Computed example of a mutant assay.
Amino acid sequence: MTPRTKEQNEEIRLQRLTQIRKAAAEVFLNKGPLLEIRDVAAQAGLGYGTVYHYYGNKGDLLNDLLWDALERAEEWWKDPLKSRHKAQSDGNAGLAVIPASDTGHKGDGDFQRRGQAAATAAKQSPVAVAGICLLQLWAEDHALYLLHKLAVEDFSWLPEARAALLSAAFRRQILTPLAMLLRTGRSANGTASSGGNPEAEPPDWLQYAEMLLAALVGCASLSLRRGMLREEARDIVLLLKL
């Protein structure tokens, strides 16, 4: 048998890490901090020793899982509305997603097909479009949902030092772009949403963004557990009146 090359070994290592982190996200959503390495191994279909080779404890695994998800989420938040432009240009319901090679989900690149909700969303406000896109992204990639869920909880399940670093990065890389989108969306809609009263606008857009994410996380929880988040994304956005 021909020995594997360094490149092949690295590819296998990255595939294993993706597999383990994806499994860990699934287990953590169900068991929270009670997660154990053996649970992750069972979910991933790998031997305990294989997972332990990469992660000797669940703290390091969760920390890496969240930073990896944060990096991918940041890329998405750089242009969460590019799906709207695609939908308008080709008449299809293509929603922007992170490349499948990064998420561990099958796909053909920058875009994957979604349901009819996306086509409807293309006619709605930028904030509504982004909300539907984000919810449907969570439906496919539970690590991204877990990131936003734990961020809303100030990463309280992590050691203080790790939680502080993640909170600061999340605020800078996720909350700030969302706050800008919310403010831009409000401006694009004119004064209708505030009744012409500038005092009706949120005094702190970052705080408003944090509250909105908390609402999305809470509403998504039940649909996610029922396996219906993709289909119910538009209903959630309508409920929140985005």
Rank of each mutant, 00 (worst) to 15 (best):
K6G: 13
R21Y: 06
N30T: 14
G32H: 03
E36K: 14
G45Q: 08
G49A: 14
T50P: 11
Y54D: 06
L61S: 04
L62I: 13
L62F: 13
W76R: 07
D79E: 10
K82C: 10
R84Q: 14
K86T: 15
G94D: 06
L95I: 06
G107M: 11
G109Q: 04
D110S: 14
R114H: 09
R114S: 15
V129S: 03
A130G: 07
L137M: 07
Y145F: 15
L146K: 06
K149W: 11
L150H: 06
E160Q: 08
R162K: 10
A169S: 07
F170C: 02
R171I: 01
I174S: 01
T176Y: 05
T176F: 05
A179L: 06
M180R: 14
S193I: 05
E199F: 08
E199M: 03
P202Y: 01
P203H: 04
D204E: 05
Q207P: 03
A209Y: 01
A209Q: 00
A209I: 00
E210G: 13
M211F: 11
L212M: 10
L212Q: 14
L212P: 09
A215Y: 09
L216K: 01
L216Q: 04
G218M: 03
S221E: 13
S223Y: 11
L224M: 15
A233N: 07
R234A: 11
L238T: 02
L240V: 03
K241E: 04
